[in-house]
């Protein structure tokens, strides 16, 4: 059973500083998204149980060739990468097109796993879009996945309870962060990651219309508001001030 795990290269969020209300991304190491690591762990566990291969799929700038070593160290068998500078920060529809076209080139994937949202923008759209493009069933918010013959039995966590869904394979499943605890790779696994098979395609080779739309995050911080300062010296003055402002005595 071949399992594709889609992973997004993002800046290491723990090392981003904010200056002038903007994230400073210069020299911030790149990593794979946190929930993507849960998706990978789920894929690796299923492979260990049922056999087959785990193929990491990622699209981004040329740094992704280095960043994907994290996933190869953490148990993936192979990587399939699409490289182009324009993919760095591309919007969800573009990335979904690229990933869906890539999946078609991977040998008989039974399961395509996503994290529920990316570590940076968390739009949570790409998995659903890929399922739609490939016309595959999709299950979201997965807290467990079991494979039974040619079906996946997935527990979904919803606001008012859990839902157990049975779905034919191949299928797209997006997982929650609490589905598992991602493993920490050993030194040996880290050092051998770079020697695992890696198929790297330029975007042009994939023959897909990637579009040119970018997501630009101006700021996720709440807007600053001017606050009025009123200094009082007694409770009487406080009541007077609140009455004047219209907060009491209305």
């Amino acid at each position: 059973m071949n399992i594709v795990v889609a992973m997004k290269q993002i800046p290491d969020l723990q090392q981003i500083r904010i200056r002038n209300r903007q994230p400073v991304l210069d020299n911030v190491p790149l990593t794979m998204g946190d929930i993507d690591k849960n998706a990978l762990e789920a894929g690796v566990n299923l492979r260990d149980e049922h056999g087959g291969k785990v193929i990491v799929l990622s699209a981004g700038n040329e740094d992704v060739e280095d960043t994907v070593k994290e996933a190869l160290a953490a148990g993936a068998d192979e990587a399939f990468l699409v490289i182009d500078d324009s993919l760095d920060g591309a919007e969800s529809g573009t990335i979904a097109n690229v990933l869906a076209t890539s999946v078609k080139q991977i040998e008989e994937p039974s399961l395509i796993l996503f994290g529920e949202g990316s570590g940076d923008n968390y739009s949570g759209q790409v998995g659903s879009r890929v399922a739609e493009i490939l016309n595959l069933p999709q299950v979201s918010f997965a807290s467990s996945i079991e494979i039974k013959e040619n079906q996946a039995v997935v527990t979904r966590v919803l606001e008012d309870g859990d839902e157990i869904v049975q779905v034919d394979l191949p299928a797209v499943v997006s997982v929650l962060a609490n589905i598992n605890e991602p493993r920490i790779p050993s030194v040996t696994q880290i050092l051998k990651a770079g020697r695992k098979p890696m198929e790297v395609l330029e975007l042009g080779e994939l023959k897909v219309d990637a579009g040119k739309d970018l997501v630009i995050t101006e700021s996720n911080l709440a807007p600053e508001t001017e606050r009025k300062k009123v200094v009082v010296k007694s409770v009487d003055e406080l009541i007077q001030a609140l009455t004047t402002e219209g907060y009491v005595g209305r």
């Binding site: 190491p29 960043t67 070593k69 994290e70 920490i184 790779p185 050993s186 050092l191 770079g194």
Partner: peptide
């Protein structure tokens, strides 16, 4: 290098988590 960064992070993750 990426490998050195990963070794550093591996040890940090284990140290902080466990």
């Amino acid at each position: 290098s990426k490998e050195q960064l990963l070794i550093q992070r591996m040890a940090r993750d284990f140290a902080e988590k466990y």
